[in-house]
Design a protein around this nucleic acid. Structure first.
Length: 1143
RNA sequence: GGGCGAUUAACUCAGCGGUUAGAGUACCUGCCUUACACGCAGGGAGUCGGGGGUUCAAAUCCCUCAUCGCCCACCA
C-alpha cells in the first residue's frame, strides 16, 4: 500500500480507504473466545422510519469513542449495531406514503400487503441507516447487526412474553386507552404531545330530578346524614329549602339561571335551591355517554343533591348525582362535573372508585374505532356515525334549541395529539394486554437507587426514578400490523369455564384442549406453551388462551387447525426494545456472546428515552437475566445455567400476595392516583396462581433460563434488603460487574448524550426541516471533522445549540463544523511535516535499545523542548483518561486539541526545526518527534479515527521503530485501530517550569515587534536582564528563542545595562530590551497599559493582605504565595513607571 | 401545578470556592515566514441575568426575582 500523504487533506479518500481496510481485516469483529475483559455496548437502535440526523450522529460518535478507546486498552470489545422496527412510527410513515402515492388505506392492501410494503421500506432505510453509521466511522461488529423484528429478537420476545404470561404479569383488560382514530390503535402516554387548541367552554344545564317528587324531603335527609361540617352554609340551605321544588325545568329564564348560578358560587343568599346543575365542558358531544354528575361531598351548594338524579340533556336518560371528592374541586367552576367514564381518564377513575359501592355508575363506550359516535345505544340514534366535530356541533345546536345551553365562552385547552398520525387522540375503552409494572419496577428502581447503575450526569437518574416510581401498568398491545404479533392463541370455550376442568392426561400438543388454567404445556420434556383461562365480561364467554414459548410454526399450525386464533394485535415496539441488550446477544439461548458480553458496559442515549427505553431495559433485563438463572464466576461472567427451579420458586412470593386477594383482583395493579384497577372488566381469571412445573431435564439450548426464587425474591422485597455490608459492590470494577451480572442489569452506566438543537433552540428533527444529515456534513467537511465538532459539543450541559443554515446545494449545514475541519486540516499537515522531517533523518541504527539509552529523557541531556513535549503529552494522556472515564467528551476533545495544536504544533514542531536540520541532533529529536507523534495519534484515534489511522500507516513506513519505548508504549501494530492506548507516564516538572517562561519571553518579544510594526522577517537585537538561573536556561535555548522571536540575543545577564532607545518589556521574571525600536507612542501606550494592569494587581493583592482575616484564615501557603505575587507585581510596576519616566 | 436545567465576550460554549474569568468562531492589525491562509504572529472585546446572603475569599455555595428550555402531571 502506498502510504504517502497527499499534500492536500482529502477526507473522502482517507475515509474510504481506512474504513475498507478495517472491514477487510475484521478489526471490529469481536470474538468471545478471545482473552480480555469484556467491554460491550449495544447501540440504541435507530428507528427505521427515516435517515439519521445529527442527534444520531453524536450518539454514534460518542459510543465509537468509548468502543475504540477500550479496544485499544485491550478490552475484548463488542459494539452491536442494529435498527428498531419502530412499530407505530414506521407503519404510520408507510401508511402515509400509501395514501399520498396510491390514495389507499391499509385496509385496501390488507395486512400482508401492508407488512410487505413496510418490509420494503425497512430494507431501503435500514441499509441507508447502516451506511450512514459506517460513514460516520462507527466501529460496530457488523456481522452482528440486529433488527428488532428479526428471528433472534422474535425468540426473545416470545420467551419473555411467555414468562410474563406464566408468571401472571401479563393480563388482558378493558382499559381506557389513548386511541388514535386515524391509525386505529391505542398509543402510549409517551406518544402523545399536546397542542393548544382554541375552542369553547360550553355550559350545559342538567335538570335535577328527585327520586319521585319528594325533592325537598330527600334533600333534607341528605343533609342531616351527610353534612357534618360546614354548618353555617347548611343553615342557609335549610332555610331556603322551601323554594326549591317549584321550577320550570324545561326553560328557566336566562336571567334567573344566571343569578342562581352566581349566587351559588358564592354560597350565600341564594333564594332557592336550583332546579338544575350547570356543567362546563369542551366536549359537549361526550355528554351522550355521561353516566353521572359528580359534586364534592362538602360543597354545600350541591351536596344536598347527592343521591338524586339529573336528566341527561338530549337523551332524557336519568343519571345519578354522586359525590367524588377526588374528581371535584369545589372551588373550580360550578362545582359540578359531568362524568363520562368511557371518555375521560379522570372519569374512568371515578367509575373505578365507585365500582362495587352503593353509588356504582355505568360505563358506556361512546365511540367507534374510527372516532365516530357509535350506535350501541338507541338514544344516540341521531348522532351515531358523526365524527367528533360534527357531533359536537349538532349537540350544541340541539342544546341551544332545547334551551339547555347556559352559555358559550371562548376557551383554550390542551388537546392530546398522536405523535404518529398528528391527529387528536380520543380516550377509548378497549381490550388491551397489559404488563404489571409493580413487581418489575421495584428492582429496577432499587438498582439505580443503590448505584448499581449510574447515570452520567447523575441528575438524570431522577427522571428515571420518578417515572418508574409510578409503576403504571404498561399497555403493550397495539392494533397495528407492523410488529411482533402477540404470541397468544385463543379459542372460545363453550361451557364458560370448561377449560378449568381439563386434565393433562396425554402429553403433547394434541392435548391442548385438556390443558387447564395454569398449566405449563410440554412435550417430551420440552416446554412449549402455557395455558390460561380468560373470561370476557363483554361477551360473557370463556376463552382458552395459550402463549407459545418459542418460534414454532408447526405448533402454531396445530393450534390453528384446532380452532385457535392468534391475537391480531402486535406488541408495543418498546417491548422488543426493552430486551435489546440481551436479545441481541442471543438470549434465550445461552450463547458464548451472552456469557461474555452481558451485562453491557454502558448505554449511551438521549435523555428523551430514559423512561420509555432505559427503564424498561433495566426491568426486563433484570427479569430475564437476573440472579439464579445463571451462575457466575467472581468476575461476574456467566459460567453456566443453574438447574431451573421451576415455577414454584417464582410463584411463592406472588402467591402470598395473591392470597389476600381471592377474587383475582390485584391490588398491586394500580393506576395513578392510587386507584385500584377495577377488575370486573379484567378478562383474566386468576383465582389461583399458575401452577406449572417445569421439567428441568433435557434442557440444552433454546430453553429460557428462568428466574429462580432468589432473583425474584430479591426484587420483590427490595426494601428489606439494604446492602448488608454497607458498601457498594461497585468499589471495584469486577465487583460491579459481578453484581450487575447477578442482578441481570443490562448495563452499568448510562451516559446521556446532549440533545442537538438548532440555532433557535429547537430540537433537531426531520419533520421540522431543521435536521442535518450527517452525510451532508461528511461530504463537505469530512467524517473526522464531524466527529471532532460533535465530541467537543458533548458537554454536560445538555442542550447543544447548532446554528443551521442552508448551503448552496440546498442542504442543511452548520458553520460549527469549521472548527472540526480546521483541526483535521491542521492534524494532517502537521503530520505530513513531521513525517517529511523524519523521512530525511536516519533512525538510530539499532532501534529501540540504542535509542532508549541514547535519549535520556528524564535526565539533563535531552533538549528542553524534547523533555517538555513528552511531559505535555503525559499531561494530555491524563486529561484524556480522566475525561473519558467520566464521559466528559468535550474535555477529551479539548485536551487533544490543546495538546496537539497548542503544544505540539505551535511550540514543539516550531522549536525543533533547527535540530531536525542538524545531523548531530536529528537522530535524537527525531525519536522524540516520532514517539510523540505516535502517542498523539493513539490518543486522538477514538475521536478522529480515519485521519489518524491513515497517518499511522505512513508513520509505520517511515519509522517502523519510534524509539523511547520506556516512555511511550510502542507495541508494533500495523493498524492503529488495534494499537495500544497510551500509558500515562511521568511529568517532567523542571521542563514544565522552564519552558513556559521561555514561551512568555518569546511572546513578549513578539508583542513588542508587533506594537512597533517591525517587519515579520526583520531580526531584532534583544538584551535580557535576568537572574543567573534563567540566564542559563535562556542561553541553553538561545537557538529556540532567536528562531521563534526572530531575534538575536545580545546580552543575557543579571546586570545587563539599559539600552538607549530600546523597547522594554518584562516577562518570565526578567526585563527585555529590544534594540532600535523607537516608537515613543507605541512604547508609551504599552507601558501605560502595563502600569494600569500592575496597579490593579498591586491594589488587589495589597487589600487582600491588609485584611487580617485573610492572613489568619486562609491557608498559609496561599498567603505566602500572595505575598510573593505582591512583591513581584510591585517590582514590575516600578520598572514600568521608571521606563515611562525615561521616555 | 411539580421537577430539572440554563442565563459568562457579538455568537457557540468551558470554568463550578482561591492568581489579573478562558476557548473556538466573528472582529481589528501585520504576515502567502515552502506543513497548514481550513494557516502564522499580535490585539480589542465580559460590573459572569437582577437583588440579597454565607465566607478571609463567590462566576462558582445558599435564598429570591426575572427570562428561556426540557420533563412529569393537570386544567371538568
Amino acid at each position: 500500500m502506498n502510504t504517502e500523504l497527499s499534500p492536500k487533506y482529502d477526507p473522502s479518500a482517507v475515509e474510504t480507504q481506512a474504513y475498507r481496510v478495517w472491514m477487510e481485516e475484521g478489526c471490529f469483529h469481536a470474538d468471545p473466545a478471545r482473552p480480555g475483559e469484556a467491554y460491550s455496548i449495544v447501540i440504541p437502535p435507530p428507528n427505521v422510519t427515516g435517515a439519521l440526523h445529527l442527534g444520531h450522529a453524536i450518539n454514534a460518535t460518542l459510543q465509537d469513542i468509548l468502543v475504540r478507546q477500550h479496544r485499544m486498552r485491550g478490552f475484548n470489545t463488542l459494539w452491536i449495531p442494529g435498527i428498531d422496527h419502530a412499530g407505530i412510527a414506521t407503519q404510520a410513515v408507510v401508511e402515509k406514503q400509501l395514501k399520498e402515492q396510491e390514495n389507499k388505506t391499509r385496509h385496501d392492501v390488507g395486512r400482508e400487503g401492508l407488512v410487505e410494503r413496510i418490509w420494503k421500506w425497512k430494507e431501503q432505510y435500514g441499509s441507508r441507516i447502516l451506511e450512514q453509521l459506517k460513514r460516520i466511522g462507527a466501529s460496530c461488529d457488523w456481522e452482528r447487526t440486529r433488527f428488532t423484528l428479526d428471528d433472534m429478537c422474535a425468540r426473545a420476545v416470545r420467551e419473555t412474553f411467555f414468562k410474563l404470561f406464566r408468571d401472571g404479569l401479563i393480563y388482558r383488560g378493558k382499559r381506557l386507552v389513548n386511541w388514535d382514530t386515524f391509525l386505529q390503535t391505542s398509543i402510549s402516554d409517551d406518544e402523545i404531545y399536546h397542542e393548544t387548541v382554541k375552542t369553547n367552554l360550553w355550559h350545559i344545564r342538567y335538570e335535577i330530578v328527585g327520586k319521585g317528587a319528594e325533592c325537598a324531603e330527600s334533600a333534607e335527609s341528605t343533609e342531616t346524614t351527610e353534612n357534618k361540617a360546614g354548618d353555617e352554609r347548611n343553615s342557609h340551605e335549610t332555610e331556603q329549602k322551601p323554594n326549591l321544588a317549584k321550577k320550570d325545568f324545561s326553560a328557566p329564564s336566562a336571567a334567573s339561571a344566571l343569578s342562581a348560578q352566581s349566587s351559588n358560587l358564592e354560597g350565600e343568599l341564594s333564594s332557592s335551591r336550583p332546579s338544575h346543575m350547570v356543567v362546563a365542558t369542551t366536549r359537549p358531544e361526550t355528554l351522550l355517554a355521561d353516566t353521572a354528575v359528580a359534586v364534592h361531598s362538602q360543597d354545600a351548594r350541591w351536596n344536598w343533591a347527592i343521591g338524586k338524579s339529573v336528566r341527561l340533556p338530549l337523551t332524557g336518560r336519568l343519571i345519578p348525582i354522586i359525590a367524588d371528592d377526588i374528581l371535584v374541586d369545589p372551588k373550580f367552576g360550578t362545582g359540578v362535573v359531568k362524568v363520562t367514564p368511557a371518555h375521560d381518564p379522570n372519569d374512568y377513575a371515578v367509575w373505578q372508585r365507585h365500582q362495587g359501592q352503593a353509588d356504582a355508575i355505568d360505563i358506556f363506550n361512546l365511540l367507534t374505532p374510527d372516532g365516530r359516535i357509535n350506535s350501541e345505544r338507541p338514544e344516540w340514534g341521531k348522532y351515531a356515525g358523526l365524527k367528533r366535530d360534527a357531533a359536537s356541533k349538532l349537540v350544541v345546536e340541539d342544546l341551544k334549541s332545547a334551551g339547555l345551553l347556559e352559555k358559550e365562552e371562548p376557551y383554550e385547552t390542551q388537546v392530546g395529539h398522536s405523535d404518529r398520525s398528528k391527529t387528536p387522540i380520543e380516550p377509548y375503552l378497549s381490550d388491551q394486554w397489559f404488563v404489571k409494572m409493580a413487581p418489575l419496577a421495584e428492582p429496577a428502581l432499587q438498582a439505580v437507587r443503590e448505584g448499581k447503575i449510574k447515570f452520567h450526569p447523575e441528575r438524570h437518574a431522577q427522571q428515571y426514578l420518578s417515572w418508574l416510581g409510578e409503576k403504571r401498568d404498561w399497555p403493550v398491545s397495539r392494533q397495528l400490523w407492523w410488529g411482533h404479533r402477540i404470541p397468544v392463541w385463543t379459542k372460545e370455550v363453550e361451557a364458560g369455564d370448561e377449560f378449568k376442568k381439563g386434565a393433562t392426561a396425554r402429553r403433547g400438543k394434541a392435548a391442548i384442549l385438556q390443558a387447564k388454567h395454569g398449566d405449563v404445556l410440554e412435550e417430551n420434556g420440552q416446554v412449549w406453551g402455557f395455558a390460561r383461562g380468560l373470561f370476557s365480561t363483554e361477551t360473557g364467554k370463556g376463552y382458552h388462551a395459550i402463549a407459545l414459548q418459542g418460534l414454532d410454526a408447526e405448533t402454531e399450525r396445530i393450534l390453528e387447525s384446532d380452532g385457535y386464533i392468534q391475537d391480531p394485535d402486535v406488541l408495543d415496539t418498546w417491548f422488543s426494545s426493552a430486551l435489546w441488550p440481551h436479545s441481541t446477544l442471543g438470549w434465550p439461548q445461552l450463547t458464548a456472546e451472552l456469557a461474555k458480553y452481558y451485562p453491557t458496559s454502558v448505554l449511551v442515549t438521549g435523555r428523551d428515552i430514559i423512561t420509555l427505553w432505559v427503564a424498561r431495559m433495566v426491568m426486563m433485563g433484570m427479569y430475564n437475566m437476573g440472579a439464579a438463572n445463571a451462575t457466575t464466576d467472581d468476575a461476574g461472567r456467566i459460567t453456566g445455567v443453574s438447574p431451573v427451579q421451576g415455577a414454584r420458586g417464582v410463584e411463592e412470593p406472588r402467591v402470598a400476595k395473591d392470597q389476600s386477594n381471592p377474587h383475582g383482583r390485584d391490588a398491586r395493579d394500580t393506576v395513578k392516583g392510587g386507584t385500584a384497577l377495577n377488575t370486573t372488566a379484567n378478562f383474566e381469571i386468576a383465582e389461583s396462581a399458575p401452577r406449572g412445573t417445569m421439567d428441568d431435564a433435557g434442557r440444552i439450548t433454546g430453553v429460557s433460563p428462568v428466574p429462580g426464587a432468589r432473583g425474584v425474591e430479591e426484587s420483590r422485597l427490595p426494601n428489606h434488603q439494604s446492602n448488608p455490608h454497607g458498601r457498594d459492590a461497585r468499589d471495584t470494577a469486577e465487583g460491579a460487574r459481578a453484581t450487575a451480572s447477578r442482578l441481570g442489569l443490562p448495563f452499568l452506566d448510562v451516559a446521556i448524550n446532549p440533545t442537538i438543537l438548532d440555532g433557535k433552540g429547537e430540537r433537531m428533527s426531520k419533520s421540522k426541516g431543521n435536521g442535518v444529515d450527517p452525510v451532508d456534513i461528511i461530504d463537505s467537511y469530512g467524517a473526522d471533522a464531524l466527529r471532532f465538532t460533535l465530541t467537543k459539543m458533548a458537554t454536560e450541559t445538555q442542550d447543544a445549540r447548532m446554528p443551521v443554515k442552508r448551503d448552496a446545494a440546498g442542504r442543511n449545514t452548520s458553520e460549527k463544523f469549521d472548527e472540526g475541519r480546521n483541526f483535521c486540516n491542521k492534524l494532517w499537515n502537521a503530520c505530513r511535516f513531521a513525517l517529511s522531517n523524519l523521512e530525511n533523518v536516519r533512525p538510530t541504527e539499532d532501534g529501540a535499545t540504542a535509542s532508549n539509552s541514547s535519549c535520556k529523557m528524564d535526565g539533563a541531556t535531552g533538549s528542553l523542548a524534547d523533555r517538555w513535549i513528552v511531559s505535555r503529552f503525559n499531561h494530555a494522556v491524563g486529561e484524556c483518561d480522566q475525561a473519558l472515564a467520566a464521559y466528559r467528551f468535550d474535555a477529551y476533545a479539548k485536551a487533544c486539541y490543546d495538546f496537539f495544536w497548542r503544544d505540539f504544533c505551535d511550540w514543539y514542531v516550531e522549536a525543533i526545526k533547527p535540530a531536525m536540520k542538524d545531523p548531530a541532533r536529528a537522530g535524537q529529536t527525531g525519536q522524540v518527534l516520532a514517539t510523540v507523534l505516535d502517542g498523539a495519534l493513539r490518543l486522538m484515534h477514538p475521536m478522529v479515527p480515519f485521519i489518524t489511522e491513515t497517518v499511522w500507516w505512513r508513520l509505520n513506513d517511515v519509522r517502523p521503530t519510534r524509539g523511547l519505548p520506556s516512555r511511550l508504549e510502542c507495541t508494533a501494530s500495523p493498524r492503529l485501530v488495534l494499537a495500544a492506548w497510551p500509558k500515562l507516564g511521568p511529568r517532567d516538572e523542571a521542563a514544565e517550569r522552564v519552558f513556559p517562561k521561555l514561551q512568555e519571553i518569546i511572546s513578549a518579544i513578539r508583542t513588542l515587534r508587533n506594537d512597533h510594526k517591525v517587519n515579520t522577517r526583520q531580526v531584532v537585537v534583544v538584551h535580557f536582564k535576568a537572574d543567573d538561573d534563567f540566564s542559563r536556561d535562556m542561553e541553553a535555548n538561545r537557538e529556540m528563542i532567536e528562531l521563534l522571536a526572530t531575534c538575536t540575543l545580545r546580552a543575557i545577564s543579571a546586570d545587563a545595562a539599559k539600552i538607549p532607545n530600546a523597547a522594554v518589556a518584562s516577562a518570565g521574571g526578567c526585563e527585555i530590551f529590544v534594540e532600535g525600536l523607537i516608537d515613543p507612542n507605541a512604547q508609551k501606550q504599552r507601558l501605560a497599559r502595563e502600569v494600569e494592569e500592575k496597579t490593579r494587581l498591586v491594589d488587589s493583592l495589597t487589600s487582600r493582605l491588609d485584611n487580617p482575616a485573610y492572613t489568619a484564615k486562609a491557608p498559609a501557603q496561599l498567603v505566602q504565595q500572595t505575598r510573593a505575587q505582591l512583591t513581584a507585581a510591585q517590582a514590575d510596576l516600578a520598572k514600568a513607571m521608571e521606563a515611562i519616566r525615561e521616555l
